[in-house]
Amino acid sequence: MSRKVDETAVVAGADSTTERSITVTVNGERFERTVSVRKSLVDFVREDLRLTGSHVGCEHGVCGACTVLVDDEPVRACLMLAVQANGKVLMTVEGIAGEDDELHPVQQAFWENHGLQCGFCTPGILLTTYDFLQEKKNPTSGEIREALSGNVCRCTGYQNIVRSVQAADQEWER
């Protein structure tokens, strides 16, 4: 078994001003944890819940790699504190594929259209796409580019991402 290092225990004078107990539902599963009040939501998801698919790219809210859905809205998980997510329902990249382990149509579309290279920005882009397509059908490529404009991809040059979103729009029954 791994020895868990409780980070809150080493914060000087840990008490209710430096740590809180929170309850969140992530990808359908309920978690109750005590967290340092200064811990970001993405660090909480990655370190405390070991859901490492959400990536930390800039920690200042520009690159979008850490995007998760909080109560169905895309959120930069590096700009939100874990304690602010108390009582909320989250979805991370690990929750996109169905219970049957099949790739979700959005994921499948990115696979077929070479919509990723290194894959680091991909989780944030998938969640941005998931949210966008839930609200929009038959988007134009301009609308897709607008929707993705808050997510940086350094590898693809975006055009295969745009194609992936177009394909996902066609294939995802929603």
Partner: peptide, 12 residues
């Protein structure tokens, strides 16, 4: 390479 990365199972 892709399915793992698409599921958030990459290991950076």
């Amino acid at each position: 390479e892709d399915p793992r990365l698409l599921r958030g199972e990459g290991a950076f």
